[in-house]
Amino acid sequence: MRHRLYLLLLVLTLVWLPPASSMALEIASHPAVNKSRLSVTELRAIFSMRLTHWSDSTPITVFVLPSGHPLHKEFSKKVLKLFPHQLQTAWDRLVYSGTGKAPTVVKSEEEMQYLLTVTPGAIGYIDKSIKHENLNIIRRR
């Protein structure tokens, strides 16, 4: 009886806990961005605002959701391995020390999706469940 209980718990755990790598978001860019995969180093270079241009010289425009947005938290922690407060501190330091610029904060997921579609060189992230025919999806390497 006890073994069955353990087995049940094990099965439930496997069913309920998604694999560590799965996420509810996709990294997305303007359809003309010619990238299908980016490593964590590359994503950090882009979202820490260090890399400013794609290899074809198109300026990179980074869109993010507000710091407290669940999708932003997930992106920050799971993709960049940073806590949102660290990311915010790094961006503030860039702007106020004159070293660089902060990403553009969009108000909603809808605005993010729209701006990614119409801004050449743009990169951001969207909810996986959203239809995204007009966007380039970037996988992590």
Binding site: A45, Y96, S97
Partner: peptide, 24 residues
């Protein structure tokens, strides 16, 4: 300026770049 490396110069009126907080 690549994915792995950024090297450059910064010139003009600057703030002393020490500790975690001085620049800002």
């Amino acid at each position: 300026n690549s994915y792995d490396h950024t090297v450059g110069v910064r010139a003009g009126r600057l703030k002393s770049s020490y500790g975690w907080y001085n620049e800002t």
